[in-house]
Simulated scan of single mutants.
Amino acid sequence: MLRRDFLRRTARGLGAAWLATRAANAAPFVFDRLPQHYRAHDEVTLGRTGIRTTRLAMGTGTIGFGGASNQTRLGMSTSTRLLLDGYHENGLRFFDTADSYGSHPNVAAAVKQLPRENVTILTKTDTRDPAGVRADLERFRRELGVETIDIVLIHCVTEADWTTRYQGVMDVLSEAKHKGVIRAHGVSCHSIEALRAAAASPWVEIDLVRLNPIGSHMDASPDTVIKVIKQMRADGKGIIGMKILGQGDMRDRPAEAIRYALGTGVLDAFTIGAESRREQDDLVQRIAAA
């Protein structure tokens, strides 16, 4: 029996326990009733890209910079096993990586042991010139051990004029999609100006956006960000949430953060980086309990 099946059976009890806790410690921002039952391994479609994957992506970039992250610091064997356990035990098929995390080899080690067609790989480039991005794509494919990368994003964009400033980069990614090197392209936004520019750009197919109920490490207030996301969704863009736990600021309030992410109704999927099997199982349980 998959662990997810066990979790589904126990979700009702967990949900009742959570609701009892909430009644005693009512907190703002948390939705009293969600419109449906959610599971981490639910199959979702990312906007109009046609890419189908799981609601929860396994993040590999917690405190990720300079070619390392908390996941890579676990060591190759441990981090690979965490990805494989997520796939086999919890049905998670969405791997979120980036060049700056240094986690391409870790993802490659896991993907090598899985049916490639069952896994969605999202990665990101920090390069801002066309020739560099073209070289990145070839290197990324080697590092990931794949012919086609599902999603490539321009990473950590802050400029309001990025859709004109980085037109050359966008053209390279468009060409890569045309050639089958990637399946979809988009952006990871780190300012409200960049997010608004992404909403207005027909080039953006997928946006990675920061969202949590307390506004921690976000581009603007949650209400402001949600208004922009709704515009994106209306235009058929795929929306993936990040900073769901506020980069750790809501680590002791995961149920509230997850219920908020689900209850907004604006995210196709979201990514959270677990650092242990226990953390990963807890995330899966929290989603089921919501």
Score class of each variant (00 low, 15 high):
Trp18Pro: 00
His178Val: 05
Phe29Gln: 12
Leu114Val: 08
Val133Met: 04
Arg4Thr: 14
Arg22Val: 10
Thr80Leu: 03
Glu193Asp: 15
Ser77Tyr: 00
Ala40Asn: 07
Tyr101Ile: 13
Ala40Pro: 10
Asp268Tyr: 01
Arg116Leu: 12
Ser276Ile: 08
Arg4Glu: 08
Tyr38Gly: 03
Leu74Trp: 00
Phe65Asp: 11
Phe140Ala: 15
Val119Asn: 07
Gly91Asn: 04
Ala135Phe: 02
Ser221Met: 08
Gln36Gly: 11
Leu7Pro: 02
Ala110Thr: 08
Phe29Leu: 07
Asp171Asn: 14
Arg142Gln: 14
Met218Ala: 12
Arg278Tyr: 10
His155Val: 11
Phe6Leu: 13
Leu83Pro: 13
Val30Asp: 13
Thr264Ala: 06
Val169Met: 09
Asn90Ser: 10
Arg233Gly: 09
Tyr38Lys: 00
Phe94Arg: 05
Thr78Cys: 03
His190Ala: 07
Gly86Val: 13
Met242Val: 07
Arg8Phe: 05
Leu114Gln: 02
Thr53Leu: 03
Arg278Leu: 12
Ala288Arg: 00
Phe270Gln: 00
Arg4Leu: 13
Thr224Ile: 04
Ala274Glu: 05
Ala57Met: 04
Ile63Cys: 02
Val146Arg: 04
Ser191His: 08
Glu175His: 08
Ser216Gly: 06
Gly215Val: 02
Asp5Cys: 06
Leu2Cys: 00
Thr80Val: 11
Gly86Gln: 07
Asp126Trp: 10
Val266Pro: 02
Ile149Ser: 08
Ser191Asp: 09
Tyr101Trp: 10
Thr158Cys: 09
Val30Arg: 14
Val30Tyr: 05
Met58Trp: 04
Ile258Cys: 03
Val228Gly: 11
Lys177Phe: 03
Ile240Val: 15
Ile229Gly: 08
Ala261Asn: 03
Gly50Thr: 11
Ala220Leu: 01
Ile149Asn: 06
Asn70Arg: 13
Gly238Pro: 06
Gln231Ser: 14
Ala131Pro: 01
Gly66Met: 08
Ala108Ile: 09
Thr45Trp: 00
Gly15Gln: 04
Asp85Cys: 01
